[in-house]
Design a protein around this nucleic acid. Structure first.
Length: 251
DNA sequence: GCGACAG
DNA sequence: ATCTTGTCGC
């Protein structure tokens, strides 16, 4: 691994095209040897979190994307998927799927180091540039304010929204049953996101700012991308694509 | 010290 | 994330 690349990663300026060779190091019970300790990875997150931009104005998206990765197979290969939909119809404009080697184990709080390379690799294949990207994971609703959606947003330099299926940190009051209802997610006395009821009688999803968005936008666009399922179409379809259940060709 | 813990 | 069939309800 080039020191330059690592240095750039540390500063949050890893170059597009080079991120695949970035190896972020994590040492876990002496089972693995990596290049950066857990402590260092957390310090990197704190630095990157300072670069997150909160949008002051909304946007009128024409293209909304969703990203996800499959769980790695026995060889550590995972499929990354990105689906681009046209808004408001939500019809498929582009689907890309690509396999990458996953090098890090899953560690709560460090998910982005595991998934970013896979997702960035597939996003590099995109012909279209989405206006917003919905991500299957937290944004700033994270112990160090740098969930997958935020980390990805910095690398893509695009507005991102975290749409997680469960809580990483924070608490909230019960959410009304009516779709569109939400309850603020509070962590350390701060509003870090919200539990959003996307569908009646189904558990809420957890929405938070990724990058270049704000909570109002995040809730609004996540909700407007829902079509009768618990998950918004972009991440729902990306999940299907990653698990090989959606043709990697435009319909 | 103990539990919690995105995917 | 994953192991897993049918089934109850809108």
């Amino acid at each position: 691994m080039g020191k330059e690349i690592l240095a750039n990663w540390r500063e949050g300026f890893a170059f597009r095209g080079n991120y695949l060779i970035i190896q972020v190091a994590v040492k876990i019970n002496n089972l693995h040897r990596w290049d950066v300790s857990v402590t260092e990875a957390k310090e990197i997150q704190l630095k990157l979190a300072n670069k997150i931009v909160i949008a002051d104005k909304d946007i009128n998206p024409q293209l909304i994307a969703g990203v996800d990765i499959s769980s790695p197979d026995s060889h550590g290969m995972a499929r990354g998927a990105v689906v681009v939909l046209r808004y408001p119809e939500l019809n498929i404009v582009e689907v890309k799927v690509a396999k990458s080697k996953v090098t890090l184990p899953y560690i709560p709080g460090l998910l982005s180091f595991r998934e970013c390379p896979v997702i960035l690799a597939v996003c590099e294949m995109l012909y279209n540039t989405p206006d917003i990207v919905l991500v299957d994971g937290q944004g700033i609703a994270h112990p160090r304010k740098l969930g997958l959606a935020s980390h990805l947003g910095l690398f893509l330099d695009l507005p991102t929204i975290g749409c997680a299926k469960s809580i990483l940190c924070g608490k909230h009051e019960p959410v009304e049953e009516k779709p569109g209802s939400f309850a603020k997610l509070i962590h350390n006395g701060q509003i870090v996101g919200a539990a959003l009821r996307t569908k009646a009688k189904v558990k809420p999803i957890y929405v938070s700012i990724g990058h270049k968005t704000n909570l109002t936008m995040a809730l609004n666009w996540a909700m407007k991308c829902c079509r009768g399922y618990r998950l918004p179409e972009p991440t729902r379809l990306a999940h299907l694509a990653a698990s090989g259940k959606l043709s990697p060709e435009p319909k």
